[in-house]
Each structure stands twice: as C-alpha cells, then as structure tokens.
C-alpha cells in the first residue's frame, strides 16, 4: 500500500470526506508531512473505487460546484486494518532490536 493510499483510507475512517477534505485531513494527521497533490490523490481514489475499498457516499452543492464525498467500505476498513497491523509489527520489530542493542539516549529516563 503506497503512502497516499494509506493516508486517504485513514482520512476516511472518521466519516465521508470530499477531495479537498482528504488532502486537509491527511496533512493534519501527518502534522504537515504528507501534502497530497491532486494528481496523486485522484490516482489513489480512482484505484480505491476500482478495487472497492472506498465508494461514493453523496454529492453536495457547494459554492456552485458539486462536491463528491467518499466513504470507506467494509473491505477498505479491513485492508487499512491489515496494513496498520503490518506497519505496527514492523515498527515493533525495529524498536525491540534497537533497545536490545543499546538503549537510545534519552529514552531510558
């Protein structure tokens, strides 16, 4: 799972969002580290809709434009959960080994 895909799915966990809503939420979640470009956002959205991980929730008119809201499907929730577990397990592996080698300064208290 690529990073844009991961953040798009994570942004949708709380509820349906539209394109810009996902960009803003991903930036907030990652404390400004992930700034999704529109091209990569819609590359990810297109694939996620195609593979059934997200779907169209509703369309709303806003300032004369149509906003499309997307929501996570049950399959999307499972895929994100599996990916989060995988990343967490990897991270745990690294931290355990690092701690065993030599305690990193400042973490031993």
């Amino acid at each position: 799972m690529t990073e844009p895909t991961f953040f798009v799915l994570t942004a949708l966990v709380d509820g349906p969002r539209h394109g810009y809503g996902i960009v803003a939420d991903a930036a907030e979640l990652s404390q400004g580290r992930v700034r999704l470009k529109i091209g990569s956002l819609y590359g990810a959205l297109d694939r996620l809709v195609g593979s059934g991980l997200i779907e169209l929730d509703r369309e709303e008119a806003w300032q004369g434009r149509l906003r499309r809201y997307y929501r996570l499907t049950e399959r999307g929730r499972h895929a994100l959960d599996a990916e989060a577990r995988r990343l967490a397990a990897n991270a745990r592996l690294a931290s355990t080994r690092l701690r065993r080698q030599s305690p990193i300064e400042g973490t031993s208290g």
Partner: peptide, 17 residues
Amino acid sequence: GYRRQWEDDMVAAFLET
C-alpha cells in the same frame, strides 16, 4: 475516459487547496 469521470472533482479539489 478518465477526465470524464474525475475532471470536475479534481478541479474543485484543486481550487479549494
């Protein structure tokens, strides 16, 4: 084909950013 499906959405999101 891709534009037909996504263009307006992309424009709206871009302008909002």
